[in-house]
Design a protein around this nucleic acid. Structure first.
Length: 571
RNA sequence: GGCCCGUUGGUGAAGUGGUUGAACACACAUGCCUUUCACGCAUGCAUUCAUGGGUUCAAAUCCCGUACGGGUCACCA
């Protein structure tokens, strides 16, 4: 009982003091209540609402784009890293819509993202789309999380780590100009931070007066001190501490800035690994300070390299305005298999990916052992030729049915005329696509589905309207006629197998004074008018108008007697 | 300008002090094969790792300076 007494007195004493001071001093709590009168949830309430995830050692990652209406290839690389890391570790991958910049927002942007996700086959575990929320850590749209942010800001005000700032854009502009003239660090700090040391009474009065204000984070950092931080890509980096009182809530819409939303959301959604572009590296000290102010665990960061473009010998950031290949739409419209785009990005992310792929041709890319320290820090050129190569290899390994299905799916969106033609001639199209395909060393002539029409159009009568014939050595009207006439009257038989067919071409060549055997011809070129290749070329061009085609035997086989005769007639 | 990050062939890069005479892949070139093309095969393609110095028996690898490139310094993300 004796112990109880002093506590009682302290309590009473405190109570009296607070009562006395009330008229003079306003507490932070009272200020916070004034600014956010309707916010009743505390940050503890939110902690309870969003408990730890049960993912074990799985990574929790997110793709968090701002909805500007485009999916940039660089963003795609971040999304791929996120998705990969989550799937690779049996973690969680979620989609969060960072729509706090209402000025830049585009309505259908989320549709675009979902379309691209469908194209590449990413299925987020948690997301919000067309009003439907999937997952227990939502909302996944930042504009719908306003009161959550407000509760967290309220908390910061209460613990004296945030304050309202009444400086106008013009004042800040003047400030920056002065700082520039004096060559001091730009920003809102120290003596420049005019609103930082206002009394709560002043603040309250100005707020009640209807003055517009932002909320700034109150930094306790000292740039003369260094903090160390370990990036999973770059390694340990040393930064001066942040001392800038950054805006965390905007005045007009009361939405948080990126920095603040990042801290609150990635904490509440329990993101373990934040993947973003390297341009965020300089704001890491700020983010760390904010996480620390709340007492939150700091997530791991993966700052990926930027994608660059070689332009007149200069490297610059790949830009969606200048470079069509910057946008994912480009690859969709050209008809690249999405896995080709993914693999080309994986190669940039971890250059040993290709080697792994060669050794594990049948595994999913999600089984690859990703190493963040192998991600480049320099900024990589995105090489479209490399993409073509990867894509050609992938397509060459597909069966004729797979190729046909993918081609039809593509064409039915981007080339309906062609889609109609191939679907009316499905078996023949598959046979065409199968020329030199389902074999040990297949042809590699398509990098994307829009390439296909360009290389097989002449097989379809509906498309066969040649503008020019690419004659080779034998280009005279009479010469051509004599070759074709002889071949068709004496040698052509639609039922011949390949060897017989070729033997007859050779015989035809010999009869016309052309060498049947290439070796003989090379040994003694003057003895002949030419060689069997010249004769083949005549037939090839006569039938297709092109000098370069896949195997002529199969082309003739698939064209069939009627069409062959018609085309010979046509020339 | 301050602060960060970087600089290995045309491209992505391997490489973390000594089997590197700098891997692998793309691109390019030449040749072979071959009815054209494609495929495939073979060969070539950085005497040197931006540069100057230092440490060391030994450096692309470690240290310092210089140059160059990139990022960032908003009520944009």
């Amino acid at each position: 009982m004796g112990l109880f007494k002093p506590f009682f007195f302290i309590f009473v004493f405190k109570f009296i003091i607070i009562r006395l001071l009330r008229g003079v001093f306003m507490t932070n709590k009272e200020l916070a209540d004034l600014i956010f009168p309707d916010i009743t949830w505390t940050i503890e309430d939110y902690e309870k609402k969003y408990p730890n995830r049960e993912v074990g050692s799985g990574y929790v990652t997110r793709f968090a784009p701002s909805p500007t209406g485009f999916v940039h290839i660089g963003n795609m690389m971040q999304a791929l890293t996120d998705y990969f890391l989550a799937r690779n570790t049996n973690g969680i991958f979620y989609l969060r819509n960072e729509d706090t910049d209402t000025k830049r927002e585009v309505d259908s942007a989320v549709d675009k993202i979902m379309d691209v996700f469908e194209y590449v086959g990413f299925k987020p575990d948690e997301y919000e789309y067309r009003g439907e929320i999937v997952g227990n850590y939502g909302p996944y749209v930042q504009s719908e999380r306003k009161e959550i942010y407000h509760a967290f800001i309220k908390h910061l005000i209460e613990i004296d780590r945030a304050y309202p700032c009444f400086c106008s854009a013009e004042e800040l502009d003047v400030m920056r100009k002065k700082q520039d003239a004096k060559k001091v660090q730009p920003g809102y700090y120290g003596a420049w931070a005019k609103c930082r040391d206002l009394s709560n009474e002043d603040r309250a009065a100005r707020i009640k007066n209807g003055e517009s204000f932002v909320i700034r984070f109150k930094s306790m950092g000292n740039p003369n001190r260094k903090i160390q931080y370990e990036d999973l890509v770059t390694g340990v980096i040393e930064f001066p501490e942040n001392n800038n009182d950054m805006v965390i809530m905007k005045s007009e819409d009361k939405l948080p800035t990126y920095h603040f939303a990042h801290v609150v959301d990635d904490h509440l959604m329990h993101t373990t690994h934040v993947v973003r572009g390297q341009e965020w590296l300089p704001s890491v000290p700020l983010h760390i300070e904010m996480f620390t102010a709340f007492g939150f665990e700091i997530p791991k960061y993966i700052h990926n390299c930027l994608l660059l473009k070689q332009d007149n010998g200069v490297r610059r950031k790949i830009s969606k305005r200048k470079d069509p290949e910057a946008l994912m739409e480009y690859y969709v419209e050209k008809g690249y298999p999405s896995i080709a785009v993914i693999e080309s990005l994986m190669t940039i992310l971890n250059s040993n990916y290709e080697e792994w792929r060669d050794n594990n041709p049948d595994k999913s890319y999600l089984e690859f052992e990703f190493n963040p320290t192998k991600v480049g820090t320099t900024g990589a050129l995105y090489d479209l030729e490399k993409l073509d190569n990867i894509s050609k290899n992938i397509i060459s390994k597909m069966t004729k049915d797979e190729v046909y299905d993918a081609l039809y799916k593509y064409a039915s969106v981007y080339d309906q005329e062609f889609a109609k033609i191939i679907s009316e001639n499905e078996e023949m199209t598959k046979a065409i696509l199968n020329i030199e395909r389902e074999q040990e060393k297949p042809r590699k002539d398509f990098a994307c589905w829009s390439d296909v029409r360009k290389s097989i159009w002449y097989m379809f009568d509906a498309l066969y309207k040649p503008e020019t014939y690419e004659w080779g050595k034998i280009s005279g009207r009479d010469d051509i006629k004599s070759v074709v006439d002889l071949y068709i009257s004496k040698y052509y038989n639609e039922n011949d197998d390949k060897d017989t067919w070729f033997d007859k071409i050779k015989a035809c060549s010999t009869e016309l004074g052309y060498a049947a055997n290439m070796k003989e011809y090379k040994a003694n070129p003057d003895a002949y008018k030419g060689n069997v290749a010249d004769i083949s070329t005549v037939l090839r061009v006569a039938l297709t108008s092109k000098s370069q085609t896949p195997d002529l035997y199969w082309i003739m086989k698939l064209l069939g007697k009627e069409r062959i005769l018609a085309r010979f007639e046509q020339i």
